[in-house]
Every structure is written in structure tokens, then in C-alpha cells.
Design a protein around this nucleic acid. Structure first.
Lengths: 380, 380
DNA sequence: CTGAAAGCGCTAACAT
DNA sequence: ATGTTAGCGCTTTCAG
């Protein structure tokens, strides 16, 4: 099968007049049909059905369209861009610095691409590393040359001043994703998510609710914002927050042995039967894998959710890794992508590329109550 | 800070002669310096240091370069592409069909981008869904128009015939990533990885080695290839393979309760003290989260790696989620990206865009022995 | 060392 | 309903 198609590709190329040309041009279609380039352009350029094309006789249209099909014509997007002055292309800038390499999450890309596709735009990638930003040489092609109508910046952590400067110098209208900027920025509402998740547990009757986070998660605002939302909800309910700080993953000293909470710096024995009256009846976990950790650890003491305790987390997708389904508030990654594009297009179509007010996108509610329920009767 | 830069952007725009133009053109520099466009082009186009530029007097060069800097000149990549006939751009095609959405993993992108950057190329994205492939309308812009010199296809699962046809029709030279095709394809050597991981455990003296996989992992060749590699190694050593099939994650019926191996379809009680003489002394896990599952489950029985059993898996990055470090063979994602670009560029520079023989990239050895050691003395 | 002219593929404005 | 001319920003060719 694979073999078949490359052979047919070669045959197709030989059938073409010029072997080195992958596709035909308007000129070739014009020569072949005996019409002018302009006529062909009108018919093709409007997709064969637009207003321009309708003005031509159907016989002419048929002639042009069939010739285009035979020659395998595809319009040269770059030539069109040069002529119209619009690239039809948005670039996204990703950081590649360690330890916070910011990749392009699939859902974010889908949100962006769906929004772009409505306007027949496409997405081009650029990557920049902290180290390289220092030397002028290594500025990515997309900032060095001129090739996009606008720029999305997905750089989640501390933004070096030189980076801001570089982007500024390009004078390309940009929008920041997942970064709290005063203008031209879109990010998810982590604070409200932390508060809502906690509120949901409070409404079920929980009082001893803990927030679990890994030590190395600091650095991104989402970590502190979710926690602040949790604490705000607890304090508003007259309860005292309890932080379970999860020890040292992702560091050189990581070990294979599972670390029981008893060994944690700020942790306390919460699983044994002696802690039944004092341990949290609910946990809000910063990330799914932290939730999984607790679910497994609890299972080793014969405890399971939601019967013996409730657990809730935040995730982009349904949180069911390792066969364990945990109730989670959904990070609105798709919507953030869409909003970012919407904002960028608004900037582009405004007179002086007006700066836009920031957009904070709410999380969506959990679709499942799998790991959440009322506190156990024995907890009182 | 954020405020500062957008203000300066506006000021910069106003300082420019044409408010709507984000950057200057060669013509503007020529007018300003009183030189011809060609001269400016030669100096700028060669980066100010190339052979072309050297032929000009240093005073002319200085004049041009400072004018370019003042005007914030950046070359129009698309105009250059139209003139030279090369887009300077490679496209990558991603599937977005459920359940197998194929995103662009960060490491793959880095491998691709590093290889492309050496040739001053950049990467453009295209996304296509199975459903949309059926209707002609929804062919992504990148296939509909002509805008890339070559195409990388990252479509990991079953490739629909219509998809192959669509790509073929574009006549754009392409290379397949993570798909076993007879030509023009690059993929990681999962079979050898499975065999090597097993061989490593055999060399340590293990005899009862199990392979653990989740039920829904079937569908991609990596799942079967790693397993086949494991089985080949076991059979070559005169041992019988044992598959631990992990139950039903990612399906509607997923539950919060941890499923003990006793309940598995093909599983058997392996953790209790009664199984000490029969349970596997080592496990090869298909993915990190499966390894984590076993580590946690074992911990609940007081067993830890590598003291009581060995466990090994395959991962792109260091496998230390949830604070648990598991020895893992590394999927050579970065190298696959690099090789794919290399292959594509080889095709492009060959006379008739010659098909290239496939490249199978070996995994790299684990950098840590954290969860692997000799079998426990009690296992005999 | 420098410049004039042509043209890449396409579309916009104005003919006819 | 169709064609002519011009030009986007850039590089190539060929002259000075």
C-alpha cells in the first residue's frame, strides 16, 4: 500500500509538464484553456462558487475547473500573501528552556486551530530558549523575518525582560497565553477553580478539607492561585486551611520507594485508624497524579473514595490515569486557545492594533462525581 | 511592565512613516540611503557579513545596516519564497480524531525544529480529523493550498485510504513519523526496546519476568512490538512469558477504587506472602503509569523496588511522576524528529524526490538503575 | 563596486 | 463576461 502511493506520485509527476514543479500555476491553466490569467484567477480564487466566479459562463467555469483538477492546481499561498499584504498565518512562540519547557498541548492547539480555520488562517511554530535569547544570533526565524500577521506567546513562567524586548522590537501584534499580563492576555481562572472545588466539598458537608500540592509546583501562578482559591473558600467558611505538601518529585534525589505522608515535612499521620477522627475528609489535589498518589495510598489502608473520603483535582482531560477515575475541574485549555485567537484577530482588525483587555476563562464543572461524596459518618 | 511595552510598541509604530506597516521594505531603505534596491538587498540578504555584502564598501554597508536597524527592517519571508521558488517551510500533519488524537509532543517538535533551524526552515502545523477527511471541504489549508516544501505526517494509528490519497494528490514530498511504512518513514525500535529491557533483567538473574500492559493500549504498533520483544527474549532464554493485563482505564466504566491484580482477567495473586515463591521478580511495564500502579500496589504490601522486585518501563522523559523514580528505556522521540527531517531534506534535494529507505531508531539505555536490581534471595 | 530591468504567482483596478 | 496593466517585496541576470 505504501509502495503503491509513492509510485503513483512519481507517475503523476511525470504526467505533469514540468517534472520539478509540484503543482501548476494560473498561467499554465490560462495557456491550456486559452483564457487570460485574470479570468482563471477569478474562477479559481473564489472557490468556483463565489461571486466572481458566478459572473463567468458555466462553460468557462467548467473548462477552468477541470483543467485545474487535471493539473493538480493548488494556489500558491505565499504569492497571494505577497500581493494582498496579509500572510494568512499566525505564529505561536513556545519556550524551550529547562526546566519549564512549554510545549503546545494538543487541546490548546485544537482551540487555536479551530478558531483560525474559520478565517482560513494557519498556525506556524517558533521556539525560543532562555539561553539563546541572550545572543542576538539565535532569535528564531519567525521573529527575525516577517512572515505572520500576528503572534501568540505561550510562555508560562517568568518572562525575561530581553524576551519582552525582542517581541516588542518585531512590532508584531501579539497575545499572551497562560500569562497574567495587563493587556492582550488570556488565562484560565485558577483562583475561582480552587474556590469552587472547595465550595463544592463544603456544600457536601465536609469541614476538614486539605489542599495537596507537590513541592516543585511553585513558579507558575496556577499553583498559587488554586491554593489561594482553596484558602479563600476555607476562611470564608470559618475553617482553617491545611496544606499537604507532597515531597520532591522530579528532582535528582527521587527514589522508587513510596513516601508515606508521615515522613513529609508539613504532613501528619492521616491514614491510620488512630487518625480517623482528625484526618481530612476531603482533599483538593493540585494535579491528577497527586490525587492518584492519595488514592493508592488510601487503598493500602483499606480506604476508598468516595466512601471513606472525597478527592478532587484539576485536569485538562478526564482524570482517569491508572484506571482510577478522579473527579476533576477542567482547565479550559481549548477555550483559552479560542479566546486568544479571537483577541488577536480583534487586535488585527482594529485601527491601530488596539491593545485588548485581558480575558480570564472559567474552568468547567466536573462531569463526574466518581470520587466525591458526603463525608463518612465515622468522621465526626 | 506589560503596560510599558505595548505603549512603546505604539510609539514605535507612530515613529514609522506608514502606520499600518509593521516593518520596512528594501525599497524604503533604498530611498532613505539613496542607494538602489539591489545594493541594499545584497547587503541585507547576506546577513551583512556574507560574500555579497563584502563586495560593498564598509561605509555603504554601515549606512544600509543602520538604516535597516532604525526602520526595524525584517525581510518578508513570503516575498523571498515567491521569488526563489522555495517556501523555506515544512508542514507537519497531525490527526485530531478521537480517541487517538495525535498531538505534537514537545520533544518531537524540538528534534524537528533543531534539524530544520540548521537550514533556516520553520515548521507549520496542519490538523486533520478522520471524519472531515471524508468531505472534500474540510481538507486543511496546508493540503488545499501550496505553502510548504515538504510534509511530515504524524498519524500514529490506522491510516485511512482516503487520507493516503489526499496526501498523494498534493504531490508534496512527505515522510511518515511513528508509522511503519515501506518507504519514507521513521519510527522508534519498540521491538528491540522490549527485548533489551527483558535482556537486562535476565542478565541480572531474573527468571520470572512479567510484562504488564493496559487493555486499551492495543491499536498502536508500539504496544505489540514491545511485547513481542519481551516475548522473544523470554523464549530465547527458554522461559515462558507472562502477561499482566491491566484493566480498563480510560473507559466509561472506570472507577475510583483501585483494582487489585487478583481481580484481573488474566492476572493471578502475586502480592501476598503466599505468592512469594511464584510471583514475578521483575516486571516490564508498557508505560510509566502502569509501573507506578505496581509500585504503589507493592508498597501497600510492604514491598519495594529494587529490594523486593525489579520494575522497568519505557518513557520519553525521565519516569519520576508521583515522586517515584522508575528505571526506563527512553523512546528516542527527539532523534526520530531529527531523522525525519533529515530524510525529508534528502528527498527534497534528490533529483526526482527519491523515496528513502525507512529509518528505525533505537531506544537509549536507562540512565538510572533506581528500580532495577538482582532478584531477592527469597524468590528461589 | 553599483544599478536597471525582468519576473516569481498572484490579485486589484480599470478597461473593453 | 473577459482582458490589460500594474505591482506586492524580493532576487536573478546582465550592464555598467
Amino acid at each position: 500500500m505504501a509502495y503503491v502511493w509513492y509510485i503513483s506520485a512519481i507517475v503523476g509527476a511525470e504526467a505533469n509538464e514540468d517534472e520539478t514543479m509540484a503543482t501548476a500555476t494560473l498561467k499554465q491553466i490560462a495557456e491550456r484553456t486559452g483564457l487570460s490569467i485574470r479570468t482563471v484567477s477569478r474562477i479559481i480564487g473564489d472557490g468556483g462558487t463565489g461571486v466572481g466566479a458566478q459572473r463567468h459562463s458555466s462553460s468557462t467555469r467548467g473548462l477552468v475547473l477541470s483543467a485545474a483538477r487535471e493539473l493538480g492546481y493548488r494556489p500558491n499561498a505565499f504569492a497571494k500573501a505577497v500581493r494582498t499584504g496579509r500572510f494568512g498565518c499566525i505564529a505561536i512562540l513556545l519556550s524551550s528552556s529547562t526546566p519549564h519547557r512549554s510545549t503546545l498541548p494538543g487541546t490548546l492547539y485544537e482551540g487555536i486551530d479551530d478558531a483560525l480555520a474559520e478565517h482560513n488562517l494557519h498556525l506556524t511554530l517558533a521556539r525560543v530558549s532562555d539561553e539563546k535569547l541572550k545572543s542576538e544570533e539565535a532569535v528564531p526565524k519567525i521573529l527575525r523575518e516577517w512572515m505572520a500577521d500576528g503572534l501568540l506567546v505561550n510562555y508560562n513562567y517568568d518572562i525575561p525582560a530581553s524576551f519582552l524586548q525582542t517581541i516588542n522590537d518585531t512590532r508584531i501584534p501579539s497575545v499572551w497565553i497562560n500569562t497574567k499580563q495587563e493587556v492582550n492576555a488570556v488565562w484560565p481562572d485558577d483562583f475561582a477553580a480552587g474556590r469552587s472545588a472547595t465550595g463544592q466539598l463544603l456544600a457536601l458537608g465536609h469541614r476538614r478539607i486539605a489542599y495537596a500540592i507537590n513541592e516543585n509546583a511553585e513558579g507558575h501562578y496556577s499553583a498559587t492561585d488554586r491554593r489561594n482559591g482553596y484558602e479563600a473558600a476555607m476562611l470564608a467558611a470559618g475553617l482553617s486551611p491545611q496544606i499537604l505538601r507532597f515531597p520532591t518529585p522530579n528532582v535528582p534525589g527521587a527514589r522508587t520507594t513510596v513516601v508515606p505522608p508521615e515522613e513529609w515535612a508539613e504532613g501528619s499521620p492521616i491514614w491510620g485508624p488512630e487518625a480517623a477522627g482528625t484526618r481530612p475528609t476531603a482533599i483538593v489535589a493540585y494535579m491528577p497524579y497527586i490525587a492518584n498518589y492519595f488514592v493508592f495510598l488510601a487503598a493500602s489502608h483499606g480506604l476508598q473514595a468516595p466512601r471513606d473520603f472525597s478527592i478532587m483535582t484539576f485536569s485538562e482531560q478526564r482524570a482517569d490515569e491508572a484506571g482510577v477515575l478522579v473527579t476533576s475541574w477542567r482547565i479550559p485549555v481549548y477555550a483559552v486557545g479560542q479566546e486568544a485567537v479571537r483577541m488577536l484577530l480583534a487586535r488585527l482588525s482594529s485601527a491601530g492594533h488596539e491593545p485588548q483587555p485581558p480575558v480570564v476563562v472559567p474552568f468547567t464543572r466536573p462531569e463526574s462525581d466518581a470520587s466525591v461524596g458526603p463525608p463518612p459518618a465515622s468522621s465526626a
